[in-house]
Protein backbone atom coordinates (compact mmCIF):
# COMPACT_ATOMS: atom_id res chain seq x y z
CA UNK A 1 0.00 0.00 0.00
CA UNK A 2 2.93 2.23 0.80
CA UNK A 3 4.21 1.71 -2.70
CA UNK A 4 0.91 2.69 -4.31
CA UNK A 5 1.27 6.01 -2.56
CA UNK A 6 4.72 6.42 -4.04
CA UNK A 7 3.39 5.62 -7.50
CA UNK A 8 0.62 8.16 -7.03
CA UNK A 9 3.23 10.72 -6.03
CA UNK A 10 5.26 9.97 -9.13
CA UNK A 11 2.55 9.87 -11.77
CA UNK A 12 -0.62 11.53 -10.47
CA UNK A 13 0.63 14.45 -8.42
CA UNK A 14 1.20 17.54 -10.49
CA UNK A 15 -0.60 15.72 -13.30
CA UNK A 16 2.69 14.29 -14.38
CA UNK A 17 0.93 11.50 -16.32
CA UNK A 18 0.15 14.21 -18.84
CA UNK A 19 3.81 14.16 -19.89
CA UNK A 20 3.41 10.49 -20.69
CA UNK A 21 0.18 11.04 -22.62
CA UNK A 22 1.72 13.85 -24.63
CA UNK A 23 4.81 11.76 -25.24
CA UNK A 24 2.64 8.88 -26.35
CA UNK A 25 0.83 11.12 -28.81
CA UNK A 26 4.14 12.35 -30.19
CA UNK A 27 5.60 8.84 -30.55
CA UNK A 28 2.51 7.40 -32.22
CA UNK A 29 2.17 10.46 -34.45
CA UNK A 30 5.77 10.32 -35.65
CA UNK A 31 5.49 6.57 -36.21
CA UNK A 32 2.32 6.91 -38.27
CA UNK A 33 3.57 9.72 -40.48
CA UNK A 34 6.96 8.03 -40.87
CA UNK A 35 5.33 4.69 -41.71
CA UNK A 36 3.21 6.25 -44.45
CA UNK A 37 6.18 8.15 -45.85
CA UNK A 38 8.35 5.03 -45.51
CA UNK A 39 5.93 2.85 -47.44
CA UNK A 40 5.65 5.43 -50.21
CA UNK A 41 9.41 5.87 -50.46
CA UNK A 42 9.92 2.13 -50.16
CA UNK A 43 7.55 1.30 -53.00
CA UNK A 44 9.14 3.97 -55.16
CA UNK A 45 12.67 2.77 -54.44
CA UNK A 46 11.68 -0.88 -54.95
CA UNK A 47 10.13 -0.04 -58.32
CA UNK A 48 13.33 1.76 -59.25
CA UNK A 49 15.38 -1.27 -58.27
CA UNK A 50 13.42 -3.76 -60.33
CA UNK A 51 13.00 -1.33 -63.22
CA UNK A 52 14.37 -2.04 -66.64
CA UNK A 53 15.51 1.44 -67.56
CA UNK A 54 18.61 1.55 -69.74
CA UNK A 55 19.01 4.99 -71.33
CA UNK A 56 22.43 4.16 -72.80
CA UNK A 57 21.28 0.94 -74.47
CA UNK A 58 22.91 1.91 -77.73
CA UNK A 59 26.32 2.74 -76.26
CA UNK A 60 29.34 0.70 -77.25
CA UNK A 61 30.62 0.29 -73.73
CA UNK A 62 29.05 -2.73 -72.06
CA UNK A 63 29.11 -1.18 -68.58
CA UNK A 64 27.33 1.93 -69.79
CA UNK A 65 24.81 -0.17 -71.73
CA UNK A 66 23.82 -2.08 -68.61
CA UNK A 67 23.78 1.05 -66.46
CA UNK A 68 20.38 1.73 -64.94
CA UNK A 69 20.46 5.14 -63.23
CA UNK A 70 17.18 4.55 -61.39
CA UNK A 71 18.46 1.31 -59.92
CA UNK A 72 21.76 2.94 -59.04
CA UNK A 73 20.01 5.76 -57.21
CA UNK A 74 17.83 3.33 -55.25
CA UNK A 75 20.84 1.23 -54.27
CA UNK A 76 22.72 4.34 -53.18
CA UNK A 77 19.75 5.39 -51.04
CA UNK A 78 19.24 2.03 -49.34
CA UNK A 79 22.94 1.46 -48.75
CA UNK A 80 23.42 4.92 -47.30
CA UNK A 81 20.48 4.67 -44.94
CA UNK A 82 21.03 1.10 -43.87
CA UNK A 83 24.72 1.72 -43.42
CA UNK A 84 24.42 4.60 -40.93
CA UNK A 85 22.79 4.80 -37.49
CA UNK A 86 19.36 6.37 -37.31
CA UNK A 87 20.61 8.82 -34.69
CA UNK A 88 23.20 10.16 -37.10
CA UNK A 89 20.58 10.57 -39.82
CA UNK A 90 18.28 12.35 -37.41
CA UNK A 91 21.00 14.72 -36.20
CA UNK A 92 22.22 15.47 -39.72
CA UNK A 93 18.70 16.29 -40.83
CA UNK A 94 17.99 18.47 -37.81
CA UNK A 95 21.35 20.22 -37.40
CA UNK A 96 22.68 20.44 -40.94
CA UNK A 97 19.96 20.05 -43.56
CA UNK A 98 17.31 22.00 -41.67
CA UNK A 99 19.75 24.14 -39.68
CA UNK A 100 18.41 27.30 -41.28
CA UNK A 101 14.78 26.49 -40.43
CA UNK A 102 14.62 27.39 -36.76
CA UNK A 103 10.81 27.35 -36.69
CA UNK A 104 10.43 23.93 -38.19
CA UNK A 105 8.63 21.75 -35.64
CA UNK A 106 10.61 18.82 -34.24
CA UNK A 107 7.65 16.59 -35.09
CA UNK A 108 8.07 17.32 -38.78
CA UNK A 109 11.83 16.81 -38.82
CA UNK A 110 11.49 13.56 -36.88
CA UNK A 111 8.74 12.24 -39.13
CA UNK A 112 10.76 13.06 -42.21
CA UNK A 113 13.93 11.49 -40.85
CA UNK A 114 12.24 8.27 -39.72
CA UNK A 115 10.24 8.12 -42.94
CA UNK A 116 13.40 8.32 -45.02
CA UNK A 117 15.02 5.76 -42.75
CA UNK A 118 12.10 3.35 -42.88
CA UNK A 119 11.76 3.71 -46.66
CA UNK A 120 15.13 2.06 -47.19
CA UNK A 121 14.14 -0.98 -45.16
CA UNK A 122 10.69 -1.15 -46.75
CA UNK A 123 12.36 -1.05 -50.17
CA UNK A 124 14.47 -4.08 -49.32
CA UNK A 125 11.46 -5.91 -47.88
CA UNK A 126 9.41 -5.32 -51.04
CA UNK A 127 12.27 -6.18 -53.37
CA UNK A 128 13.03 -9.38 -51.49
CA UNK A 129 9.33 -10.27 -51.55
CA UNK A 130 9.13 -9.87 -55.31
CA UNK A 131 12.48 -11.36 -56.23
CA UNK A 132 12.02 -14.22 -53.77
CA UNK A 133 9.12 -15.53 -55.80
CA UNK A 134 9.70 -18.50 -58.06
CA UNK A 135 10.87 -17.22 -61.45
CA UNK A 136 8.56 -19.75 -63.05
CA UNK A 137 5.54 -17.68 -62.03
CA UNK A 138 6.54 -14.76 -64.23
CA UNK A 139 7.57 -17.11 -67.02
CA UNK A 140 4.27 -18.96 -66.93
CA UNK A 141 2.34 -15.70 -67.03
CA UNK A 142 4.41 -14.30 -69.89
CA UNK A 143 4.27 -17.60 -71.79
CA UNK A 144 0.48 -17.34 -71.74
CA UNK A 145 0.78 -14.02 -73.53
CA UNK A 146 0.20 -11.69 -70.59
CA UNK A 147 2.05 -8.39 -70.92
CA UNK A 148 4.55 -7.59 -68.14
CA UNK A 149 2.19 -5.18 -66.39
CA UNK A 150 -0.70 -7.67 -66.29
CA UNK A 151 1.60 -10.45 -65.06
CA UNK A 152 2.88 -8.14 -62.32
CA UNK A 153 -0.59 -7.11 -61.23
CA UNK A 154 -2.33 -10.49 -61.41
CA UNK A 155 0.42 -12.96 -60.58
CA UNK A 156 3.47 -11.42 -58.94
CA UNK A 157 2.17 -8.70 -56.64
CA UNK A 158 -0.67 -10.71 -55.01
CA UNK A 159 1.82 -13.44 -54.11
CA UNK A 160 4.55 -11.02 -53.05
CA UNK A 161 2.20 -9.19 -50.67
CA UNK A 162 1.81 -12.33 -48.59
CA UNK A 163 5.55 -12.41 -48.07
CA UNK A 164 5.88 -8.66 -47.62
CA UNK A 165 3.18 -7.94 -45.04
CA UNK A 166 4.63 -9.82 -42.05
CA UNK A 167 8.07 -8.30 -42.61
CA UNK A 168 6.49 -4.89 -43.01
CA UNK A 169 4.74 -5.12 -39.65
CA UNK A 170 7.95 -6.05 -37.89
CA UNK A 171 9.55 -3.05 -39.60
CA UNK A 172 6.84 -0.82 -38.09
CA UNK A 173 7.43 -2.31 -34.66
CA UNK A 174 11.11 -1.45 -35.03
CA UNK A 175 10.16 2.00 -36.23
CA UNK A 176 7.92 2.65 -33.24
CA UNK A 177 10.70 1.74 -30.82
CA UNK A 178 13.31 3.62 -32.80
CA UNK A 179 11.40 6.89 -32.52
CA UNK A 180 12.60 6.94 -28.90
CA UNK A 181 15.78 8.64 -30.10
CA UNK A 182 14.05 11.94 -30.94
CA UNK A 183 15.15 13.18 -27.55
CA UNK A 184 18.46 13.91 -29.28
CA UNK A 185 16.89 16.74 -31.25
CA UNK A 186 14.61 17.91 -28.47
CA UNK A 187 11.45 15.99 -29.26
CA UNK A 188 9.35 15.03 -26.26
CA UNK A 189 8.30 11.48 -26.95
CA UNK A 190 7.38 8.64 -24.61
CA UNK A 191 10.93 7.96 -23.46
CA UNK A 192 11.72 11.64 -22.98
CA UNK A 193 8.55 12.05 -20.90
CA UNK A 194 9.89 9.41 -18.53
CA UNK A 195 13.12 11.41 -18.18
CA UNK A 196 11.17 14.56 -17.38
CA UNK A 197 9.24 12.78 -14.64
CA UNK A 198 12.49 11.40 -13.26
CA UNK A 199 14.04 14.85 -13.11
CA UNK A 200 11.06 16.13 -11.13
CA UNK A 201 10.61 13.20 -8.76
CA UNK A 202 14.10 11.72 -8.48
CA UNK A 203 12.57 8.32 -9.24
CA UNK A 204 14.36 6.67 -12.17
CA UNK A 205 12.92 3.20 -12.36
CA UNK A 206 9.16 3.62 -12.28
CA UNK A 207 8.75 6.07 -15.17
CA UNK A 208 10.99 3.91 -17.35
CA UNK A 209 9.06 0.74 -16.53
CA UNK A 210 5.82 2.59 -17.20
CA UNK A 211 6.83 3.70 -20.71
CA UNK A 212 8.32 0.25 -21.34
CA UNK A 213 4.94 -1.29 -20.63
CA UNK A 214 3.23 1.18 -22.94
CA UNK A 215 5.65 0.30 -25.76
CA UNK A 216 5.01 -3.37 -25.10
CA UNK A 217 1.24 -2.95 -25.26
CA UNK A 218 1.47 -1.05 -28.55
CA UNK A 219 3.79 -3.54 -30.23
CA UNK A 220 1.68 -6.36 -28.83
CA UNK A 221 -1.40 -4.92 -30.52
CA UNK A 222 0.53 -4.67 -33.78
CA UNK A 223 1.66 -8.27 -33.56
CA UNK A 224 -1.81 -9.52 -32.74
CA UNK A 225 -3.30 -7.71 -35.70
CA UNK A 226 -0.62 -9.17 -37.91
CA UNK A 227 -1.25 -12.75 -36.78
CA UNK A 228 -4.90 -12.28 -37.70
CA UNK A 229 -4.02 -10.99 -41.15
CA UNK A 230 -1.55 -13.84 -41.71
CA UNK A 231 -4.13 -16.41 -40.72
CA UNK A 232 -6.61 -14.90 -43.13
CA UNK A 233 -4.10 -15.09 -45.97
CA UNK A 234 -3.09 -18.69 -45.34
CA UNK A 235 -6.54 -19.95 -46.33
CA UNK A 236 -5.91 -19.60 -50.05
CA UNK A 237 -2.46 -21.09 -49.85
Amino acid sequence: MEYLKVLKEIFIDGERYMYILKGLRFSVGVTLVAAILGVMLGILAALMRISNFHPFKKSKDKKLRDFNPLEWLAIFYTDLIRGTPAVVQLMVLANIVFAGFRDMPVFLIASLSFGINSGAYVCEIIRAGIEGLDKGQMEAARALGMPYSVAMKEIIIPQAIKKILPALVSEFITLLKETSIVGFIGGVDLLRSANIITSQTYRGVEPLIAVGIIYLIMTGLFTKLMRKVEKGMKISD
Binding site: D134, G145, M146, E154
Partner: peptide, 28 residues
Protein backbone atom coordinates in the same frame (compact mmCIF):
# COMPACT_ATOMS: atom_id res chain seq x y z
CA UNK B 1 0.50 -12.00 -79.64
CA UNK B 2 2.88 -14.81 -80.62
CA UNK B 3 2.80 -16.28 -77.14
CA UNK B 4 -1.00 -16.41 -77.18
CA UNK B 5 -0.53 -18.82 -80.02
CA UNK B 6 2.36 -20.82 -78.58
CA UNK B 7 1.42 -22.66 -75.39
CA UNK B 8 4.01 -23.84 -72.92
CA UNK B 9 4.04 -26.54 -70.26
CA UNK B 10 6.84 -26.41 -67.70
CA UNK B 11 8.73 -29.05 -65.79
CA UNK B 12 7.63 -27.57 -62.48
CA UNK B 13 4.07 -26.83 -63.63
CA UNK B 14 4.19 -23.19 -62.53
CA UNK B 15 0.51 -23.04 -61.72
CA UNK B 16 -0.58 -19.86 -59.98
CA UNK B 17 -0.89 -20.92 -56.33
CA UNK B 18 -3.13 -18.02 -55.30
CA UNK B 19 -5.76 -18.82 -57.92
CA UNK B 20 -8.17 -21.72 -58.08
CA UNK B 21 -7.78 -24.32 -60.80
CA UNK B 22 -10.58 -22.70 -62.78
CA UNK B 23 -9.00 -19.26 -62.40
CA UNK B 24 -5.67 -20.66 -63.54
CA UNK B 25 -7.37 -21.61 -66.79
CA UNK B 26 -9.49 -18.49 -67.26
CA UNK B 27 -7.15 -15.72 -66.07
CA UNK B 28 -5.09 -15.25 -69.22
Amino acid sequence: KIRENVGMVFQHFNLFPHKTVLENLTLA
